[in-house]
Design a protein around this nucleic acid. Structure first.
Lengths: 231, 231
DNA sequence: AACTAAAGTGTAATTTTAACACTTCAATAT
DNA sequence: ATATTGAAGTGTTAAAATTACACTTTAGTT
């Protein structure tokens, strides 16, 4: 097996997944109640063990699919957690990923099977091991990224209204925004297609639906454009 | 051994270290010529294998110390590289770190022993495996960080002049900066102590020396201050 | 027909950023 | 001693970006 390298100790490797969703009011996390030791009965992120013939990213994709049924969603590596005592069971290095999903798309049955629940980020229960650290880092990362990259759209349905988008940013940054300035800024980037349809689920008047246009974004980026939202 | 977890395959784990220095003109990388297979004779980052009772960060610290003799320097995790075929020898997951060091401080003997050399980032030789990817990511990260966190000072001597600091930023961003605007911006943050001494190594007139004041920075941060340099 | 509640829209003040050129200083050469 | 040289140091003005702020429109409900 060790063709080239010295016979160092092999390590137990894991991936853990911080899954964000947005329900039009608050940012939520998909957490599971552990049904195995160590930490049985405690809240936890969903994790798994990368197989020997599986890349880290693929492994995180598999874990995410196992819990949500979703594939091809936003998934980014967060950090590798490698403290010796981070897992009381035994030494495990865990590579954490975070994912942004459209909260209406996930597979309810899978989530139920896995004993998982959506919890608001404003009220996160105690988590096993260093999972709280992972969540906090994921939140900081999301906050840093969302102002400079168009990743917020990953948390919204394909079609969304301007008030929805604003409310997402307000949820991410825990801050009220001025709708005139927000709208002006977003539209000035010319990344959204305004649709003819309206969404009337939250007002009599109805709000126009928009759709993020990734092609436009790519084109602008190639010309040196930087996405930015003021929060 | 596997008290709690299923008997998954243990994985071979490594750390690799991207080491940056600045010689008052350009940004440099400390690279080694590999003296072992695979990739013998090729340029490479310095790496190592985390011991079973050693955290990832500690492992990176050890590797860094092994090559430079330095401890307690800026060292940050970059990314965990986990593609199955990234190392042709065998499957190895490598956690890359990057470090910013004061280029005059490193241990010349150790560097010679390790067959390492400083190479300008503008002219990086072919590197083994995915080390070029690591370097590129480290550069992007450095560029992102250096404008919003006072990490540039890690690359300069304790005492430095304003032209030196400017030249560092010009090297990082490959862009000429206006010295009036640069100086104004830096000094407006009130993070530097201006010393009475001058450095005369690069002009007859001599330039005043400054020192970064971490306490002032911490104090400002706690009041909601954000470091920023325009580039 | 009046009411309601959310959507939608523009302007002015302030702050930040960007552009730009001459003076000072001290060592060296004449 | 005087002139020369080359880098250090310093302020102002124009442009752009950000922030603050309030009323009108719409369509369903009463």
């Amino acid at each position: 097996m060790s063709l080239y390298y010295p016979l160092e100790d092999r390590q137990l490797l894991a991936v853990d997944c911080v899954i964000f969703g947005f329900d039009n009011h608050e940012l939520k996390l998909l957490l599971i109640k552990r049904n195995m030791e160590p930490g049985k009965g405690m809240w936890s992120l969903l994790g798994g063990f990368p197989k020997h013939d599986e890349g880290l990213y693929q492994s995180a994709e598999r874990v995410l699919k196992q819990l949500t049924g979703l594939q091809n969603v936003y998934l980014e590596q967060l950090f590798a957690y490698g403290d010796v005592d981070r897992d009381p069971g035994e030494r495990v290095v865990s590579v954490a990923y975070y994912s942004l999903i459209k909260i209406e798309d996930y597979d309810k049955d899978l989530v139920k099977e896995n004993n998982a629940h959506w919890r608001p980020v404003s009220d996160i229960p105690d988590l096993v091991f260093d999972h709280r650290e992972m969540v906090d880092k994921a939140l900081r990362r999301l906050r840093r990224r969302a102002r400079i990259q168009p990743i917020g759209f990953e948390l919204l349905p394909e079609k969304f209204t301007m008030p929805q988008l604003q409310s997402l940013y307000e949820a991410i940054y825990q801050k009220e925004l001025d709708k005139r300035n927000f709208c002006k800024k977003i539209l000035s980037m010319d990344l959204l297609d305004k649709l003819k349809e309206k969404d009337k689920s939250s007002s009599k008047k109805g709000a126009f639906l928009y759709r993020f246009n990734p092609e436009k974004y790519q084109e602008l980026v190639s010309k040196g454009f930087y996405f930015s939202v003021d929060v």
